[in-house]
Structure formats: C-alpha cells, structure tokens
C-alpha cells in the first residue's frame, strides 16, 4: 500500500485515492483538425515507462481534489507530489511531455 502525500491534506493511505493515469495529456487545441492517428493517440495511447512516471491521482475520500504525482513504477517510490496545473520538478521536466520516451507520438499529443 502506498502512502500518498496529498498536497492539500498530507499523507494518507492509498485506499483514499483513485488513480487517474498519465498526467499532462492536454486536450487537443483543435480536435476537429486531428487525423485518425492523432485522435487514437490522444484517446488510447499513454506512456507506460519502467521508471519515473508523471500521473494524476484524486483524493476521493478526502479533499476530492486532483493533483499530480511522480512515481517510480519499478520501486513504487513516490518522487514528487505537486498540484494540478503545476509542472513537475525540473529533474522530471521531460515527463510533462507524453510520448517523449519513444519520441513517436504525433505532435499534438506531445504537448503538456
């Protein structure tokens, strides 16, 4: 079980939270301009790294606010917690660009 340090409530058990998958996936600026491929990547493709991952969590049984976490998916260690709308700490800046790992995501899904 993870202990997650909610930026609003402090450390609580993982069972109080729900997982919201990859963070920093922006809604496309002009959805109708997307190709089918770009739309597929926006809807269905998320990074799945073995290592640090920027992801959203919601404190469902507490303040009910969404926030961001950088978590290592191999050790399950939480590296950083920051509020919705904020950027990850500088050493994890690349994680705010989904698709950057393989460098293959269509441009529209790469934006923070």
């Amino acid at each position: 079980m993870l202990i997650i340090d909610c930026p609003h409530c402090g450390p609580r058990h993982e069972q109080e939270f729900h997982y919201g998958r990859q963070a920093h996936v922006a809604y496309p600026a002009d959805p109708s301009a997307l190709t089918d491929e770009e739309w597929a990547h926006y809807l269905f493709y998320r990074d799945n790294p073995r290592g640090p991952h920027a992801e959203r969590w919601v404190h469902s049984a507490g303040c009910r606010k969404w926030f961001n976490v950088v978590r290592d998916t191999l050790t399950y260690e939480i590296k950083a917690v920051y509020r919705a709308g904020e950027q990850p700490p500088p050493e994890y800046a690349a994680l705010a660009r989904p698709g950057a790992v393989a460098g293959t995501a269509p441009e529209t899904t790469k934006e923070a």
């Binding site: 998958r21 597929a40 493709y45 998320r46 799945n48 073995r50 698709g99 790992v101 393989a102 293959t104």
Partner: peptide, 18 residues
C-alpha cells in the same frame, strides 16, 4: 507486461498499460 519497454526500443508506441 514488458511490451511497452520493447516497443520503446523499437521506436513505436503501443496502447498498453502494465
């Protein structure tokens, strides 16, 4: 469960979550 890791090495993306 390692498909994304291998796909990254091949320079492609797969819609998988492990």
């Amino acid at each position: 469960g390692s498909t994304s890791t291998l796909a990254d090495l091949a320079g492609i993306r797969v819609p998988i979550q492990s």
